[in-house]
Design a protein around this nucleic acid. Sequence first.
DNA 1: GCGCTTGTGTGCGCTAGCGAGCAGACCGGG
DNA 2: CCCGGTCTGCTCGCTAGCGCACACAAGCGC
Lengths: 235, 235
Amino acid sequence: MPSPQNAPAVNRLLEGLPNGNRRRMLAGCEPVELAFGDVLYTTGGLLKHVYFPTRSFISLVMPIGGAASLEVGLIGNEGMFGVPLALGVDVSPVRAVVQGAGPALRMDAARFSRELRESPALRRQIDRYIFVHLSQLSQTAACTRFHVVEARLARWLLMTQDRAHADGFHITQQFLALMLGVRRVGVTKAASSLQKRRLIHYTRGNITVLDRPGLRAASCVCYRADREAYDQILG
Amino acid sequence: MPSPQNAPAVNRLLEGLPNGNRRRMLAGCEPVELAFGDVLYTTGGLLKHVYFPTRSFISLVMPIGGAASLEVGLIGNEGMFGVPLALGVDVSPVRAVVQGAGPALRMDAARFSRELRESPALRRQIDRYIFVHLSQLSQTAACTRFHVVEARLARWLLMTQDRAHADGFHITQQFLALMLGVRRVGVTKAASSLQKRRLIHYTRGNITVLDRPGLRAASCVCYRADREAYDQILG
DNA sequence: GCGCTTGTGTGCGCTAGCGAGCAGACCGGG
DNA sequence: CCCGGTCTGCTCGCTAGCGCACACAAGCGC
């Protein structure tokens, strides 16, 4: 669903709460502006806040053996960053990097825990989100193993477009390579193939999706699976 | 930790509970005997029970595109099967297959939900386990992407040995191939290399670990990372 | 306008793992 | 004792992706 540029700046996880709970949560959150490349968490540190992106989006990256890394989650206004806090743990195995600049709502860890204890509706909502996250993580693990770079790239672009609420966004191929866990040249090859087929257009980090249905056809089933998991549980 | 063959048949998740809660849980569970190959859950069905293995162990397998599949979790007496139920969802994206025969404790879904609501200590314990599961899943995703078959096989053998509470266990190479998401020949090559180096011995599905430290050296860092994640959070 | 940084496109030799197919070894049942 | 199923080992040709290195082009600061 390529939301229009002027989609309302809300977080769907919070919107799904009953009125009272939602108001309480919104009141407890502080609006912040996230800049591209901001690192919200690095492994080894402590989680101090949860973030509910509204128009920004955040990438969860698993570092492994020095240079290599792999994206294991992408969080837009359909989700939240800080799942471990909901599980009573204040660390995380993954880095959190702002992938798309924009506003988000943030709540400090202690308050979030309190709200969670006091609001069964919130707890329920977050639990379901954790389930979806778990499903998508399993899907990503298998996808990364079995699908070719081009299909995975197409999937990534679709996921990002959903979260960017726009047809275009900024991301260099070098960065994409880190997300997909491949070499930059691999991305170049896949991207130029998609461009030749008029599915996308890009120059120096500015990517535009031209043909969304075509891109879906070029992507692996995993994109669809992710969407379905979300819609089924939180839709 | 290669537990001795005569390790007590308990589930560590339940053992970690305060006395009252533990007794309540044990009373609510029914002892069952799991047979090798039993399928406790197939995608599309409903989760009717949670299982706490005591001497058995269960493999979580993500099916993808027909024939291919990939193991995304291995559950022994350190964990439980049925995490989605703890998150208020009664389906799962993965198949659950009994990998090691033996006893387990099982509780029906409704009762488990009730216990979870009524016992904060249980909730806390399960939440932490979910976090560990999440961490290990992220680790597995990256491991599967970056590490060679031989190292991944070594890791798998170590993880299985931990859960089998014995040096030897039964698993054919064909089955291993499905777990690791590679061809059978790939497993044959890796396994015979490990055997040549006197780290393991196997014939017709009976695998014995001969040199555990050597196997650790041959495995990727992921084995260690998993252990540490568990010990830190639930140890 | 010049030079530097950043992003993209190549090419080359190499390896891990793929698909398919075959052969022998082992084992249990009739 | 043989037959058939199961498990393991190996081959062949092939491809996706790797590491490395180099070329060029577009934008930016000065």
